[in-house]
Design a protein around this nucleic acid. Sequence first.
DNA 1: TTAATAAAAGACATTTTTGTCTTTATTTTA
DNA 2: TAAAATAAAGACAAAAATGTCTTTTATTAA
Lengths: 146, 146
Amino acid sequence: MSIFSKTCEYALRAVFYIASKTVDGSRVGIREIAKNVDSPEHFLGKILQDLSRKGIIDSAKGPNGGFFLTRQALKRPISDIVSAVDGDNIFTGCGMGLTYCSEINPCPLHHEFKKIRNRITKMLTGTTIGQFNKDLLLGKILLKKP
Amino acid sequence: MSIFSKTCEYALRAVFYIASKTVDGSRVGIREIAKNVDSPEHFLGKILQDLSRKGIIDSAKGPNGGFFLTRQALKRPISDIVSAVDGDNIFTGCGMGLTYCSEINPCPLHHEFKKIRNRITKMLTGTTIGQFNKDLLLGKILLKKP
DNA sequence: TTAATAAAAGACATTTTTGTCTTTATTTTA
DNA sequence: TAAAATAAAGACAAAAATGTCTTTTATTAA
Ligand code: FES
Ligand code: FES
């Protein structure tokens, strides 16, 4: 297991890619995104449609259309993407799968797990969609393997 | 998503239960385990068979048979259970799903994610199967919801 | 040796996740 | 207006995870 679903991993990579390509206001097509993020094109299409419906990214049909992000959207935390795709179990759920996490009726790992969960939450709420644009454009950071 | 598969959550809960019930050397049947850990009986059976084949727990057939843990086994870290069931992606994989995690070609979240991953690893290698026996028997800690 | 007990194993069934392919709707531009 | 481009939507398909039921094997104890 990984901490995010594959769907969510595609979503994160794709949104980062769109972000880095739309700082100037242009749009990116699904084919290009899929290629640069190493994901199945049509499957990613659905994922982005969903994010678009939820208002996290924008899209435009027709020639010169594609997906893009507003300046506002670039400031959003990536926790928005994660909770849109994977729900919020990662933020609040019990590490051992109890039906809910409880301070007074904790599972064995509760104490330690809570810290980890908080750390994850902090990472996700503390980093914005647009934060890596520069490093992505410089190639210091990658969205698929070289 | 949760950080462990459901299968792994069942495994962890079950092994903790067996641990707390076999400090005296007796065995526990699958029905009792499943009931106390809130998991489907036969499905859990397979999981425990697997752990038994892999030498993490022991089992005995026939009357008075059941699953049990040796004193040795109680000292094992629970990371053994997790990697037996879920593999080691959680210990070494990339948070954003790149085919491998790389220090020189990192994904955007690499730096932060690495710390989290290390923390998870520390939790799993640092806690033993038998560690919670006392608290479990006292009911201070639970393996299913009350 | 027989009956009872309990895990092991096997064969499926269901659900969820992931992925593909085709058609439709919208927009732009010539 | 016609053609081209592109996201949206729909209908499936495949694979993986999760779950159920039945039969077999090993062990114990009477
Ligand atoms: S009860 Fe399990 S993490 Fe809180
Ligand atoms: S490259 Fe993604 S976590 Fe290291």
